[in-house]
Write a protein that binds this DNA or RNA. Structure first.
Ligand code: FES
Ligand code: FES
Lengths: 146, 146
DNA sequence: ATAATTAAGGACAAAATTACCTTTAATTAT
DNA sequence: ATAATTAAAGGTAATTTTGTCCTTAATTAT
């Protein structure tokens, strides 16, 4: 479904929203361990999420690391997809036609359309905070290691 | 969403179901042109679909080519996904956890679940024939070139 | 039989994705 | 000021996916 990059971006952001604050920043090492992702690759993805501080924030130096503001927690998951450039995934034709269109639809278009809408809705309505709260629940996980 | 291989497999099978019969086989060249895919790569994918004659059939030699039987047209699209080994896509965790499970669900699991069911349903209930009939309709396309 | 045609199969190449590593810049603590 | 710590940035490497090419096998037509 999603690329590894996007999966790591989603898991990392949820983890950061769960565990960080301006006072308690998280290091790359901690994040990568927590979400079971390759540290160096994760670093690149966190950079994307930090660009223009659009999703998460970072500071360098001792006690530095990554964190997310309360305001950013209110952003929809869609923002994460945008940050890693996988935003247009749900706009694409399921059969790979160059353009998904109503005027030149593929034979699956009209059946796929409502499903696509639900997927878009899922990522537009759920905020980072909501997901992190779900993950806080003892029975929900973002750790991949088991 | 799907890999290129899967997209080509779906488009090729639909095209073959539209245009072929035991008497009128389609050459690789025609198929690749029709669905706008790289011929040699498409050849590999058609081989997968032909393995054990599970989805399409082929014969070599002059006037040879690919075709599909009336019986195979009754197969669900799912069979195409199986043939190209992308069958388990809808079983996977949307956040990339090693296992999508009810006992250790990710924070999106329960919201994604019904959508996943609809996707599975889409590919299990639609037959190759149904899709090819839709594609026969003047207003539905599997040609990528425009 | 021979030649022509077509898919099958295998090796190879290019491109994209994923992953790693090293240096630099920023920040903090001493 | 200096040293230590941490992310940023850039380059490189491994892997996977996508795409090509060439030879072989099967079939047909002559
Ligand atoms: S044209 Fe294929 S999904 Fe819209
Ligand atoms: S555990 Fe993530 S979708 Fe099921």
């Amino acid at each position: 479904m999603f690329s590894k990059a996007t999966e790591y971006a989603l898991r990392a952001t949820i983890y950061i929203a769960q565990k960080s604050s301006v006072e308690k920043k998280l290091s790359l090492a901690e994040i990568a361990t927590a979400i079971d992702s390759p540290p160096s690759f994760t670093a690149k993805i966190l950079q994307l999420l930090t660009k223009d501080n659009c999703v998460i924030n970072s500071v360098r130096g001792p006690n530095g690391g990554f964190y997310i503001t309360e305001k950013s927690k209110q952003l929809p998951l869609k923002k994460i997809l945008e940050a890693v450039n996988e935003n247009d995934l749900f706009e694409k034709c399921i059969l790979g036609l160059k353009k998904c269109s109503e005027t030149k639809p593929c034979p699956l278009h009209f059946q796929y359309k409502p499903i696509k809408q639900e997927l878009i809705h899922l990522f537009q309505t759920n905020t980072i905070q909501e997901l992190s709260e779900k993950a806080d629940n003892e029975s929900l996980f973002i750790n991949n290691s088991i």
